[in-house]
């Protein structure tokens, strides 16, 4: 089958497969949210996942992190199998997945109320490599989110929603991850602040890593990501490059 591959537009040599999901089903109890889903993400890619509420965007992320009630199918993260057939203990293996290079920035505020912003950023860097160079990483984050500089010693519980989201995203970016999963970064924020947060995400230098952003609002993603994938009742639908998303939007 080498000929059709050769017939494709030649792929850049350094494009590495960061995430390869094959036949993933996941759900909670008797409810199946994700149906037999395949997805590949390559290094240096920024992928947008668009879909309505309750169509499984967050569950897809949780399934990659091993946080759903049960799941089946294979998930290769950096070539290491992290998805297993599992029917209990959500979150039991999450830290191992995270150690393989996953940074999940969950929907809403999953923060530690009592820790200060600085400790919070440190907590993002629990993987051994990231812990050693957490100073430089922190500086990088503070460059992305300058408002946080003043707040470094404040407990996170006292911050506003936008600042919390910045902390939450900053914590995710602290990690030495090769795959960033960002779940609805603009949710619950004022449109302007939401846009700012999105801009910050788009400006992050990816290098060898990849990023998947789930959003309900296609307009925020348009033109800024490499691919937009629609998600509909637990399956991925219609893949298009971002420039085409204007034309394919009706089918999403």
């Amino acid at each position: 089958m080498s000929a059709p591959v050769a017939a494709q537009p030649a792929a850049p040599a350094e494009r590495r497969e960061i995430l390869k999901v094959k036949g993933l089903s996941a759900g909670y109890g008797p409810m199946r949210v994700i149906h037999d889903l395949d997805l590949s993400v390559y290094s240096g890619e920024r992928v947008g996942i668009v879909g309505l509420n309750g169509h499984g965007k967050s569950t897809l992320f949780y399934a990659i992190a091993g946080l759903t009630g049960w799941q089946r199918g294979s998930i290769l993260l950096n070539g290491v199998e992290v998805g297993r057939t599992r029917s209990q203990g959500p979150g039991r293996y999450t830290h191992l997945v995270v150690r393989q290079g996953l940074a999940l920035i969950p929907q809403g505020d999953e923060i530690f109320h009592g820790l200060t912003v600085e400790e919070h950023l440190d907590s993002g860097a629990f993987t051994p490599r990231a812990w050693k160079e957490r100073k430089e990483r922190k500086e990088k984050i503070l460059k992305i989110f300058p408002p946080l500089v003043k707040l470094l010693k404040t407990p996170v519980g006292r911050l506003s929603g936008g600042e919390r989201r910045m902390v939450s995203i900053g914590r995710g970016l602290m990690a030495d991850a090769s795959l960033f999963l960002v779940d609805e970064p603009s949710l619950g924020l004022a449109p302007k602040i939401g846009k700012g947060v999105m801009e910050a995400l788009f400006d992050v230098e990816l290098g060898q890593s990849a990023m998947i952003i789930a959003e309900q609002n296609v307009a925020l993603l348009e033109g800024r990501v490499d691919r937009v994938i629609g998600m509909h009742v637990g399956k991925l639908k219609g893949e298009a490059s971002a420039s085409l998303s204007f034309q394919t939007r009706r089918e999403l």
Binding site: G27, P30, D36, S87
Partner: peptide, 21 residues
Amino acid sequence: DKKKSERRSMRAEKGGEMLPE
């Protein structure tokens, strides 16, 4: 019942076939 529903949810096939919903 949990095992039953898990097995049932695994049986659906892939591809062009429609989703249960």
